[in-house]
């Protein structure tokens, strides 16, 4: 069974020999300094170079034992393509937003329609997706999207957006519908270029920040809309939610994605019982992966598999300073080595 077959079977609820182990990329960054040095494909240079990005991604896959290819190495590509200003960071800091295109939510009508083949780094990400899918046909290539509400917090100051949820709900709905439609089109393009699975990360949409009521009104419908668009192209979806999900368990069960990925704070045993019928991905602490020791990474990984995660993965983006041998400690447990 190839790595691609295995994870696709998991997501289609078909029995497999063992749980896959992945790190999706995007917000859940899949890159280490160690591998950058080995390959000569380093941050920040790779962020705008499809070929180097592919080199680094493939090298990460080979060196760490992670069973996927995951690009980009940040969550700023959509926001940049929509007019935001990005700073590319340095060799261990990923790109981040430095200037928002919107001053108020009302201004969303000034946003230009997204063209995945023209705007910002999107063409480079599409090209890289093609390269990866052609060079590694047996390995799942993951296409990464940012959830509409989290993307909104990259287009306008988060404080202003959170206030607007209560003060100008109509405008926020307008913005979110616009983003959902445009980013779904980018999702389609990723799939056309060879992405096998789509992961949507929605870090700013956590129930911890919004509470269950606002989550239900401003997150759930847009995520489901996005997921349904991807499903029409026949690809499975994993949604990553940051923070503790305590008060949002109930609305999470309404997500239409095949799989939910959770943060390190979430108790997998509890999540397993409250979100039945959905695949769970998670949730090795990235701090543990960075600092070790190896023995603890092994124990935690083993426990997670015993508690019933369907896909073993880091709980968040890898720190670029994470040693390769620490990631291997996790991947080898999944592979039963």
């Amino acid at each position: 069974m190839t790595e691609k077959e295995r994870i696709l079977r998991v997501l289609r609820n078909i029995p497999v020999d063992r749980a896959p182990v992945i790190c999706p990329g995007g917000m859940m960054t899949m890159a280490c300094r160690e591998v950058m040095v080995q390959t000569g494909c380093s941050w920040p240079g790779v962020h705008r170079d499809a070929k180097k990005m592919a080199e680094l991604s493939i090298a990460m896959y080979r060196e760490t034992g992670l069973e996927n290819l995951g690009i980009p190495f940040c969550m700023t590509v959509e926001a940049e393509a929509l007019g935001g200003e990005v700073e590319d960071g340095d060799e261990t800091t990923s790109p981040s937003m430095v200037k928002y295109p919107l001053k108020s939510v009302r201004q969303w009508t000034t946003l230009k329609k997204l063209d995945p083949h023209k705007d910002g780094r999107l063409p480079a990400i599409l090209e890289c997706t093609s390269i990866l899918s052609q060079r590694c046909p047996d390995t799942p290539v993951i296409g990464n999207l940012v959830g509409p509400l989290s993307l909104a917090t990259s287009l306008i100051d988060a404080t202003a957006l959170y206030k607007a949820l209560r003060q100008e709900p109509g405008e926020v709905h307008g913005l979110l519908a616009f983003l959902t439609e445009n980013c779904s089109r980018y999702g389609d393009a990723l799939i056309e270029h060879g992405a096998d699975i789509i992961v949507i990360s929605d870090p700013s949409a956590t129930g911890e920040i919004l509470g269950p009521k606002l989550f239900r009104e401003f997150v759930l419908p847009y995520l489901n809309n996005m997921i349904d668009c991807i499903h029409t192209l026949g690809k499975p979806v994993i949604v990553h939610i940051c923070g503790n999900v305590g008060s949002t368990y109930e609305p999470l069960t309404k997500l239409t994605s095949e799989c939910i990925s959770v943060d390190a704070l979430v108790n997998i045993k509890e999540a397993r019982s409250v979100i039945p019928g959905k695949k769970l991905m998670g949730n090795v602490s990235t701090l543990l992966l960075q600092n070790g020791p190896v023995s603890r990474i092994q124990t935690v990984s083993k426990n997670l598999l015993d508690f019933g995660v369907d896909i073993l993965a880091p709980a968040c983006g890898l720190s670029a300073t994470t040693p390769v041998r620490h990631i291997k400690a996790m991947t080898e447990i999944a592979k039963g080595k």
Binding site: T159, Y162, K163, L165, R166, Q167, E208, I209, L210, G211, L214, G246, S247
Partner: peptide, 14 residues
């Protein structure tokens, strides 16, 4: 008590 969340806190402070 998780009755209020971040959006509420911001508006109360305003």
């Amino acid at each position: 008590q998780e009755e209020y969340f971040v959006p509420e806190i911001l508006l109360c402070a305003d």
